[in-house]
Design a protein around this nucleic acid. Structure first.
Lengths: 229, 229
DNA sequence: CCTACCGATCGGTAGG
DNA sequence: CCTACCGATCGGTAGG
């Protein structure tokens, strides 16, 4: 029954809030989430079958339903895990930032990091596949989104009161997040160094300020070209 | 054979380049494209079946393959039609624009119009489903994208030489297009008036200039709220 | 454009 | 976690 599976999942959850994640071998449960995340990113939620996922971790398809009651449940686990982790990355960055400008930079670099880290398929999947999650399951994910939105808005208020932003902070936020998320279409497998550089560029670009050093981003199209305009 | 179908499709194509599209009843072929576009936007390419599409226009599923050799072919038709039309919209807007600032405004408002017009599902589908198109079929679509990219870059050069843009035009373009495309997540069924207002706001927002009148966009979340951050 | 059908694959289940 | 299987649905085809 679903209750049993749900209970099992709770036991298997990642270590709570503050604890540092040790590099121990993944449980089957987490192997499945990771494999599902990669496959959903590659082929889409509907395009990746339960058999694809179980094949990737070396078990048979029936065994999938020992760990998850439905296919949708593993999608939920992918999204919830990724968004929670993303929030933590950003919070950590913000901790070390004092001035409004530094805090904006922290937000940008945290967002880019969450979006382009090795296991960040969750965010790309969220951007493409949130429609596939039933409204009830979507609720807790929307709550995480809302929290994140508020973090941005409060930082942008600080930045605006310094006179660095001329427009409405709500629109500024949406445009900034849109531009940052758009990088999934043209930034591919960036090195940490490229990511740092990109975050710097973004601060200047979003504020429409000239960059002190020069004004050109690394290369015409970092990574492979993407068809999306 | 596929050749036959392909030939038929050619006959049934929309009137060439310059001609004005009369409000005549749609052919089955175009009915199918339109229905497919809507369904792909709603449920995704994989989520919408051939039966869904044919049901929407009132024919049986087998008849689909009289008009298209494969399901992928109707996706291609949706995308090619939408992108071609989008290019025309922008070109028309640019024709009436003189100063660099006006030309930037034309680009922005054309882009928003193409993205939010009643039959603009094509662009939303392209943003989400381009992976589903085989590389060979993707090529002509990429060419259309490339053309559009170049239009943006040449206008941005003009804008930059006026001193309105401080950063690299390539990055500015990507961020602008990313921010504009992001509106599909938070703008819903805008009126022409709202769309005009939004285009105005975007010019100021992207240039990070204060808006003369005031500084607030229409409402906190025009249309329904979307979960995507 | 319809009827009737194909082999393949889907998410999910029973029983161990 | 496996084997064996389910009913449903998929894209696509043959023949008219």
């Amino acid at each position: 029954m679903a209750k049993t599976i749900s209970a099992k999942r709770q036991e298997r959850r990642a270590p709570a809030s503050g604890e540092v994640q040790e590099r121990q071998p993944l449980t089957r449960y987490h192997q499945l989430i990771r494999a599902a995340g990669k496959l959903f990113e590659e082929k889409g939620y509907q395009g990746a079958s339960v058999r694809d996922i179980t094949h990737a971790v070396g078990i048979t398809s029936g065994s999938f339903f020992y760990h998850f009651a439905t296919k949708e449940d593993v999608l939920f686990a992918v999204l919830e895990g990724g968004m929670t982790e993303g929030l933590q990355v950003v919070a950590r960055k913000l901790d070390g930032a004092r001035t409004p400008r530094e805090r904006l930079h922290a937000l940008i670099s945290g967002h880019l990091e969450a979006l382009h880290s090795e296991y960040s398929y969750a965010h790309k999947v969220w951007l493409r596949e949130w429609r596939q999650i039933s409204p009830e399951k979507r609720l807790p994910l929307e709550a995480l989104s809302q929290t994140y939105r508020n973090v941005w808005l409060s930082v942008l208020q600080e930045v605006k009161s310094e006179g660095l932003i001329a427009t409405d902070t709500a629109l500024f936020r949406r445009n900034a997040v849109g531009a940052l998320n758009w990088t999934i279409h043209w930034v591919r497998n960036p090195t940490p160094e490229q990511l740092r550089r990109l975050a710097d560029d973004f601060v200047y670009a979003l504020l429409n300020e000239a960059r002190p050093g020069d004004a050109v981003v690394a290369g015409p199209d970092m990574g492979g070209a993407e068809p999306v305009r």
